[in-house]
Design a protein around this nucleic acid. Structure first.
Lengths: 326, 326
DNA sequence: GAATATAATGTAAGCGCTTTCATTTTGCTT
DNA sequence: AAGCAAAATGAAAGCGCTTACATTATATTC
């Protein structure tokens, strides 16, 4: 920057202004400086800029997994939206490990970002500390509950489970099962499972079978179907905590000669693209993943533009997408 | 840090050393300083640290898309591996837009990261400039070719296309088609398409049909199948540039009453989890996605540990996974 | 115990910007 | 043309650390 200033015959302060706040510099100098910077291939050092300016154009976002397509799409959307406003996403991934989350949050906070976005409401002590003493907006996404740390934008997973159970109950289905993946680690899947069981029991007076599998992938869905049928042969409906599991079960049902929805009804969760294309098409519960990304960006931007904006707590709800498997 | 120093009764330099290079400080002071820092909840400011130290623990990685499961899994793997060594990934996503890539690369470079990892070999002029003047290792991943900018780790997509064509030709299949998504933007898919067409023509003397669809999603696979059959009704084999397209086509074939592989042979690309579970199971070409992530991390770490390590250019190759659709 | 080597600590100079405040220039008014 | 407000520019003080170098304490040798 010093060099640009020298060549352009101005002070570094003016160069900084010309680049940072062009409207504060005369037209003539602005163009001259820009031209020189261009010619010299000057690239500002953002680290120095951030140290001096006490703010970075960074937004830390922490998700459990990058390969989970919900988070991936939320992330992709947020990246694009924030980028348009000059912010850059700093993405972290902890694999459902709260200790790892704690370390990542601490690391992110030390870059003092413009905002911090984390997934879920359940965090380690240290994470809570770091987050609540962070000098920036903090939003907890993908979950709804009372009293967010600062802002919360998501939906009730427990509610999604209830919806599934109520739907089954209304159809007069009494022999049901819930299949969930890594319920011990994924709090959201756990909440859906609990919501389902509690509601189904309350509404039908019968206890649903719950089976847990070790991953969200297709193969486990097929395996789960076998286990459900082994443990409760007269099962007529299964709710899955993920569409991929449901699709895996459909493939398995196909192999086993079971007809869907005739012999067995299947309800997914996620409304992945594939749900619209299976034979028959998969009935599923749709979480508001696009809405979450948008709402997070909108809220963070608002907070950044007008720092006195208060935090919010949003429940974006889920939708039942009726197709052909129930 | 000043406060920690005051409370511990030492200079800030000592505090810095105690935290950064503990072995350079006496046992007694080290524990005292650590204890004070802990008690005061001191969190170092990484921005200041990086400015002073002239290097950041950041590794910039730029991919076309976060929702593409190959990149997502490479990214997830790299995150974990680098994290273990104290590096943090800075992830960028440009949606196959070279101008956007250029901006992101410039933005990333201005944080002067420890390394920069980009996807592919085809970049805008400005990207090339920034990358070649970057003061850190640069690796181009997911593609193979001669003369990488610095290091290259990937495989030949053209070769993957050739493999598919050769496989079809060996089976005596002469009426074939290639279905690719966004061939105008995705250079890797384009290379596979070209590799397929050239090789198929050379080997069988007949021109394969090529159809382009607008996304990598299932629905487009089904649509593509209809188009192929409309344009070339006697088609006996189709190679897809992605497994999801192939699965979409299988669903459509099912609806149309076509038997696979009897009436039509289908070859995917990607070896996604789903390929192992369809009925029949999908024959596909497997890119070395895990190997890429590992190799990139290993190489970058090596370069960082021993700065005189030269760049490399690795072709990790693809594998044909024989299953039941061809 | 003096002399010397070695380890531990402190001092202070930046790292490359941004921003406040002071100064100069410009554009209007009368 | 003088006078003033407003706009444009420059000087300089940091931002919170790291690290080269100087200094002091400690260990080792004879």
């Amino acid at each position: 920057m010093e060099e640009v200033a020298k060549v352009a015959g101005v002070s570094v302060a003016t160069v900084s202004r010309a680049l940072r706040t062009p409207e504060a510099v005369s037209q003539k100098l602005r163009t001259r400086i820009e031209e020189v910077a261009q010619r010299l291939g000057y690239a500002p050092n953002r680290i120095a800029g951030s140290l001096a300016g006490a703010r970075t154009p960074l937004i830390g976002v922490i998700v459990p997994s990058l390969t989970n397509s919900f988070f991936a799409s939320t992330l992709e959307q947020m990246t694009t939206l924030f980028e348009a406003r000059g912010y850059q996403l700093m993405i972290g991934q902890h694999g459902y490990d709260t200790d790892r989350e704690e370390r990542i949050v601490a690391a992110f906070a030390s870059w003092n970002p413009s905002a911090l976005v984390v997934t879920g409401r359940n965090h380690a002590r240290g994470t809570l500390n770091t987050l609540s003493s962070a000098a920036c907006p903090v939003v907890e996404m993908w979950d709804y509950g009372d009293r967010p740390l600062d802002s919360g934008i998501g939906f009730s997973n427990h509610g999604a489970g209830e919806l599934a159970a109520r739907f089954f109950a209304e159809q007069g289905l009494t022999r049901a099962a819930f299949v969930g993946a890594i319920l011990d680690k994924d709090d959201r899947a756990r909440a859906r499972a609990d919501g389902f069981s509690e509601t189904f029991r309350r509404l039908t007076g019968t206890e649903p079978l719950t089976v847990t599998v070790s991953s969200r992938e297709l193969g486990e869905g097929g395996a789960a179907l076998k286990r459900v049928l082994a443990q409760q042969p007269d099962t007529t409906a299964i709710a899955f905590s993920g569409d991929m599991l449901a699709v895996g079960a459909m493939f398995e049902a196909d192999r086993a000669g079971l007809s869907i929805p005739g012999d067995l009804k299947i309800l997914g969760y996620g409304d992945l693209d594939i749900a619209r294309h299976t034979n028959p098409r998969l009935t599923t519960i749709r979480p508001p993943h696009n809405e979450i990304g948008e709402a997070v960006v909108r809220h963070v931007l608002e907070r950044l533009d007008r720092p006195d904006t208060p935090g919010i707590n949003l429940d974006l709800g889920v939708k039942l997408i009726l197709r052909e498997t129930v």
